[in-house]
Nucleic acid binder design. Sequence first.
DNA 1: CTGAAAGCGCTAACAA
DNA 2: TTGTTAGCGCTTTCAG
Lengths: 341, 341
Amino acid sequence: MASSDPKRTLTLRDVSEASGVSEMTVSRVLRNRGDVSEATRDRVLEAARRLGYVPNKIAGALASQRVNLVGVIVPSLSNLVFPEVLGGISEELEDTGLQPVFGVTNYSAEKEEAVLYEMLSWRPSGVIIAGLEHSPNARSMLENAGIPIVEIMDVDGDPVDSVVGISHRRAGLEMARAIVKAGYRRIGFLGTKMPHDHRARKRLEGFESGLAEAGIELADREFYSGGSALLKGREMTDAILKRSPDLDFLYYSNDMIGAGGLLYCLDKGIDVPGKVGLAGFNGVDLLDGLPRRLATMDACRREIGQRAAAIISGHHEAGMIGGERIELTPKLQPGDTIRRA
Amino acid sequence: MASSDPKRTLTLRDVSEASGVSEMTVSRVLRNRGDVSEATRDRVLEAARRLGYVPNKIAGALASQRVNLVGVIVPSLSNLVFPEVLGGISEELEDTGLQPVFGVTNYSAEKEEAVLYEMLSWRPSGVIIAGLEHSPNARSMLENAGIPIVEIMDVDGDPVDSVVGISHRRAGLEMARAIVKAGYRRIGFLGTKMPHDHRARKRLEGFESGLAEAGIELADREFYSGGSALLKGREMTDAILKRSPDLDFLYYSNDMIGAGGLLYCLDKGIDVPGKVGLAGFNGVDLLDGLPRRLATMDACRREIGQRAAAIISGHHEAGMIGGERIELTPKLQPGDTIRRA
DNA sequence: CTGAAAGCGCTAACAA
DNA sequence: TTGTTAGCGCTTTCAG
């Protein structure tokens, strides 16, 4: 509260002077480090509290060469998917003394490079970054950072260090197989027009190979960008069904547009899954509240966050090195929008 | 790439030696500061790039007493509301050289205090924090931080410094008036059981005073916590209508449960807005895709983020001090779920 | 335009 | 249990 110069922020020295204890011992008390007598401890804490001292981690980090920050880089926050991943990370880091620091790339490789550079310049204890595709510069920064790196969401590719995710290719493949097995043949795809959403791209690739196994080709496709996903799902569904009325299945690249498609079909009185089957991707819990359960595949978002964070905090505590590879298996949730065999 | 000791991270000195230019000049080049000849400039940049040098901002911040970080503290990420605010902040900070750093409190005052303490210990250029209610400790930390503080979302209270938000009390009040004006009389409230969600509480208080103006009391109320909001909205609506079948209006504390309620009513064939009117709060764009437009009130989330960030970056550039107060006005969006006069 | 010296606030390592 | 001495890697300031 009281201070001769209210502008300057307090230092250890202020607490030291106020308590009559050496800076070093004050530092020990504030970090619960080393043996300090109960008495001095109390005096120091009292003084620190009274002054309203907040330690300067910048100085501490520089001196100790230790930073309790974990950089987390994701493409988007509006996607609904990533907030959940971040939730898993936050939760797992909760009691480790590590603090997540988020950065957003908007699916831009350039922005990713900038955010990564910025983060690495704070010398974090680890980096969690979405995806396996990075610019050459970004990749080499990651390789040379000298800290644990965990690439998340996707395992189809060549990780820098550790990786935690699912195979989007396989997710697409298995969805295709399930659809074919259920007897659908005229299949359309609806997705985002995101050239840099590599995971959506891989799902589509996997999906097409799954169809190809049965000698089927994608009958039609429809892309969008921006706007309310639910509404877009309606509009796209309308568009694709008008253009290709003979479609008997619609595969959506995410659950939100899939939900829009489902609502559209129900509105129009289209028999789902009899005349047209539907499936999305992600397993968002929004689907629980819809009139009918959309088929989907859980992307294990929360768990991915947790496992990735656990890898970093493990390294942090044990000083381990070496890339782990954790592939989670998304479960197909057939819901009510695929015909039963 | 090549280095005798691959473990140690590179310093300015390494670049200095590799380029034959003094550390000081290297520093100048890397920060685009002061006049440096084209020739040395090129040599330095070449060396830095070749070595893969990433500056150490910890050291830089300590030496310059300048940190380009903005702390952002929000209660939750799963709420859908906050990712949008963060988006607004990110966008606005884009080209200012400032970097947002996020922290999550889970609506806990204790956690908020811890997160705030952690953030302040990094000496950020400013702090953006949701809400006006903080523990005495947190409040005094904010007051003594010596940096611009922007409290966001809510303006009903006593800000520490600047504030950007809407009046939730007034939002509730106006919604109540609109409902009463439309002729509804038996009104129920459905919301989250979040004792620490002060904004939801204020909306409800404002709502009740709005009803009181017409001599009306809330006829029933229903609370929930956790789970899929859409599904909860259905369940709660079912519960409250079974318990109080004479209700003619349901006011939901957020759009997601409101949307669940709307879907429930449509499923059950309840005449909306004839027999029962519905309204939510937030203006989430999900509503655009529903079979009918739920009445709601836009909480101006993105703009709040932008304005708050602009205040911080303004201070940053101009060194201004002094609290601004920006009250945005949420617009009532009557949609299709309130009877027309 | 370039460099040398000093020090940001803290902690590692050692000494007492 | 406590204190002292040196820096951490950079930037500020002042001199060339």
